[in-house]
Structure formats: structure tokens, C-alpha cells
Amino acid sequence: MDWTWFHRFGSPPHLYGLAGRLTPWFAWPSAFLIAAGLYGGLVLAPADYQQGDGFRVIYVHAPSAWLSLMAYTWMAVAAAIGLVWRMKAAHAAAASCAPLGAWFTVAALCTGMLWGKPMWGTYWVWDPRLTSELVLLFLYLGYMGLRSAIEDPQRADRASAVLAIVGVINVPIVRYSVEWWNSIHQAPSVMKFGKPSISWPMLTPLLIMFVGFTLLFVALLLVRLRGEILRRERHARWVAEVVAG
């Protein structure tokens, strides 16, 4: 099998250019879909039979929570590729995932708390789902902290990659916590086998938001990746040429 296409990702100038060319293809559809999804979710979708209008938090909460897990999975896979194939570009991608994933985790936690107060009667309880999602935030913060604590970039890459890979065990724990244990958090309505437990007029904007948020994540990841490549290659000649225009 010919692996040259794979190894070209390892070339920083190539990846820098590719990420720049791809960004608008993700950014514009994402902006369009999020606008459409918010309009559909906040205006068009009917109120819930029990929660009234309060259920609309789901349109930001569920996509944020989904991306908090997906960003971590991508980060761990990129870190593993970087570790095994000694590919700096993969380490750069993993490092770019972390702050984005951390922000999506914060968004999921905050929107969940805002929903929890009126619906459950409390902002926070030490429930398996809530606690494991908080652990996910600490894993992101630990990953970023470890990176910034080690000055040598290569050592920072390898040490943080091991942390990212070890922490990936938390991803299935967050996902299945509501099924393995008694939890106050409801079971998945959409991300499950079989028919979704949410009616179609409410589900359609939610699915649009899922796609929109995922594209937003990819667009932001590409932007961050370009910055990360420039930072790492700041002494290289091609960077001087790019900056000079």
C-alpha cells in the first residue's frame, strides 16, 4: 500500500496550506446550520409536554456534550498517531483539540446546570454522569497544563500524549454512565439504537445543531492547527516566507 498521502500530512507547510484551504468549507456551512438549528429549536419547535420551553437548552447542551467527547477521542487518536509514527503534525493536532474540547465541556456543564435547577431542583449533584463529565474537563485541563509545564516541545508532546491516551478510558464511562448505574441524568434520547425518544419536530433542529457544532469544531480545529504549526515552525524558512506574503 502506498502511504505517501499519509506522510504528506506530516509536512508542516503542506498541512498549513491544506488547513487554510479547508477552513471556509467547514466554517460557512457551520454558521448556516447553527443559525438554522437555533431558529428551528428556539422558535419553530413546539414546547415540551412536561418541561415547557425549558427543554430548549438541549439544542446547545447535547451538541456540546457530544463534542466534548468527540474532541477528546480525536485528541487521543492524534496523540497515539504522534507517539507511534513520531509525527509532529499529529501532536500539533492533538494540542489543538484540547482547548476546544475543554470549552465544549464547560458549555455542556454550564447549560446542564442551568437546566438542572428548574427541572431536577438542583444545579449540581455528584451523580456518575455529572461527575465523569467534570473529570473530562480536568483531563483536558491536565493535558494543557502538562504541555505548558514542559519546555522541550518533543518531551511535552510525548508526555501529554500518554496522558491523553490514558484518559480516553473516561470517554465510554461518560457515555454509558447513565446505563451502567442509577443516575439522575436521563438516558440518551438520540444517540442510541432504535427509535429516538424525541418527537420529530423537536429532533430535526437538534440533528441540524449536531452537524453544525461538529463542523464548527472542525473549522476551529483547522484554525488552531495553523496557529500551532506556525508557533512550532517559527524558526523555519517557509514560515518567514508565508508571513512575508
Binding site: 427541572m119 436521563q186 438516558a187 425518544s197
Partner: peptide
């Protein structure tokens, strides 16, 4: 001394319900 409501995973408009 504390009672919390647990919502289920079903979301639907009142007419459907």
C-alpha cells in the same frame, strides 16, 4: 430532606402526549 425530580428521556409536544 431533599427531593429531586428525575426527568426521563422522552421529549414530545403536548398534542403528541
Amino acid at each position: 430532606d431533599e427531593v429531586l425530580a428525575k426527568h426521563d428521556e422522552n421529549y414530545m409536544p403536548p398534542e403528541v402526549h
